[in-house]
Amino acid sequence: MTKLFTCLLTVTLLALASSLASAHDPSSLQDFCVAVNNSNSAVFVNGKFCKDPKLTTADDFFLPGLDVPRSTSNQVGSNVTLIDVDKFPGLNTLGIALARVDYAPYGLNPPHIHPRATEIQTVIEGTLLVGFVTSNPDNRFITKVLNKGDVFVFPMGLIHFQFNIGETNALAFSSLSSQNPGVITIANATFGSNPPINPDVLAKAFQLDKSVVNYLQQKF
């Protein structure tokens, strides 16, 4: 009976480990799978149809223009240029994406999460204050000031941000461990959802007066 119980426990743990592993991008089943919108003579793998490998060219694995500065003329003073599988079909099944982040002086990439990816960021120019918050119940704030050449990692699914604390423009590049990392900006999702979340819910959750919640929902 003990041996049977041990065997069942082992099988259960292996199944659990397998299910946890599948939470990340699936492993590639071939050398590459260039995404294509035309389903004729294509194979459906990992969320995208794959171009016939014999028809791929160097251009499927090439994307120019990431050296061009982006406009930061917006309310937060930053601009994220995400290169994911939708913009770069050659990324399909490879489990990686890239982002260029431009910051105006005192520009902010607001608190957000990537539900499907860990992010590692390298500062190219400027000085950034960055940080993330650990999960419940600790909610520990881990933060650092980064200068040119510094690297910082933001674990998958945790709230994080970057803030340019310098008086000049800043630039950073981020790699993300998913071809489609996704992004949820906390303020936008909370106060700008469509349709809006019931103000009574937000007032109680954030311990705010309902008039403040109404004001924030109008802002977003």
Rank of each mutant, 00 (worst) to 15 (best):
16 L>Y: 13
14 L>P: 03
84 D>T: 06
50 C>R: 04
131 G>F: 03
39 S>F: 09
112 H>A: 10
138 D>P: 05
59 D>W: 07
171 L>Y: 07
46 N>R: 12
28 S>G: 13
93 T>I: 03
2 T>A: 11
150 D>Q: 07
210 K>D: 04
193 S>L: 07
184 I>M: 02
154 F>A: 05
102 D>L: 01
95 G>Y: 01
25 D>S: 13
208 L>E: 00
64 P>K: 06
149 G>V: 02
151 V>C: 07
107 G>N: 01
30 Q>M: 13
177 S>P: 05
61 F>G: 06
14 L>F: 10
97 A>S: 15
87 K>I: 10
8 L>D: 00
191 F>N: 06
50 C>Q: 04
175 S>C: 08
77 G>H: 00
21 A>W: 09
127 T>L: 09
122 T>V: 02
6 T>R: 14
102 D>I: 03
190 T>L: 01
124 I>A: 12
186 I>R: 04
36 V>H: 00
212 V>K: 14
115 P>G: 09
75 Q>M: 11
48 K>H: 12
79 N>E: 13
39 S>C: 05
65 G>S: 00
10 T>G: 11
107 G>F: 13
118 T>V: 14
115 P>A: 05
136 N>S: 15
153 V>R: 13
186 I>H: 03
79 N>V: 04
177 S>W: 07
185 T>K: 02
91 L>V: 11
72 T>N: 00
185 T>A: 10
104 A>T: 08
119 E>N: 09
90 G>D: 08
20 L>P: 02
114 H>S: 07
42 A>K: 10
10 T>L: 15
178 S>W: 07
150 D>H: 11
135 S>G: 09
35 A>Q: 05
47 G>K: 12
103 Y>S: 11
53 P>D: 10
179 Q>G: 12
179 Q>A: 14
215 Y>K: 15
41 S>H: 08
49 F>K: 05
154 F>C: 06
217 Q>H: 08
